[in-house]
Design a protein around this nucleic acid. Structure first.
Length: 209
DNA sequence: TATTCGATGTGCT
DNA sequence: GCACATCGAATAC
């Protein structure tokens, strides 16, 4: 891949749509992180939808708190939060301001800047362990709370169309790691992609295209 | 102020 | 497959 290529971020409009649609459409897109003249990038292979105040697993279910306030911003806002005392999760707000909806990026397939990613991440068993989890990819790309509330159509961290043709099949399953709202089929991932995070629920996943 | 919990990851079995 | 580290945020009181 050519580092000199100019990447055009998807506009905010892309995110001002139904959360499930955005979750599906993000698969196959490129997540780009620029730092100085370095480019770290990966293809999005797994996402989850969190759909506002009526979704028991969504942070907006418990109303407005200091942590969840950026979730109520307009679609295209970056929502990063801190969990389990040591990890970060990276989301993109969807739909109109005030809805409290977002897509969690759960896994990417690393494509550029693998060397830096490995340094950021620390020891791994195989290359497949590098970015196959929401907090793993945050570590690799250096995504932390300083990005919370930022614009996903910005310069440093953004998503762009893939240059490859996207001919893959999409599976949908239950979401990972929840205690409530666990039965909603809001997790999307690319069939047979080895960088998908967990294999739990994959057996019962359904093909949707 | 006290207590519980968590959209995870790691390591061991 | 399963236990558990870890600590900030949310909730209970």
């Amino acid at each position: 891949m050519n580092n000199k290529r100019i990447y055009i971020p998807l506009s905010r409009k892309f995110y001002l749509r139904n959360t499930l649609e955005v979750s599906k459409d993000l698969l196959g897109k490129l997540l780009i992180r620029k730092s100085g003249n370095k480019i770290l990038a990966g293809k999005i292979v797994e996402t989850e939808a969190y759909i506002g105040e009526h979704d028991p697993a969504c942070h907006a279910y418990k109303k407005f708190t200091n942590r969840s306030k950026t979730l109520y911003e307009t679609g295209g806002t970056i929502y990063v939060y801190f969990v389990y005392g040591k990890y970060h999760c990276f989301n993109i707000v969807t739909e109109e301001k005030g809805k409290g909806c977002a897509v969690l990026i759960r896994a990417i397939e690393p494509l550029m800047g693998l060397k830096s990613m490995k340094i950021n991440r620390g020891k791994i068993k195989t290359i497949f362990d590098l970015t196959n989890g929401p907090s793993k990819l945050c570590l690799c790309l250096g995504i932390d709370l300083s990005y919370n509330g930022g614009d996903i159509a910005g310069k440093e961290l953004f998503i762009t169309e893939s240059m490859e043709k996207n001919n893959f099949q999409i599976y949908v399953s239950k979401r990972i790691g929840l205690n409530s709202g666990k039965d909603f089929p809001y997790r999307f991932f690319i069939k047979n992609n080895p960088y998908v995070s967990k294999h739990i629920f994959n057996k019962e996943a359904k093909l949707i295209n």
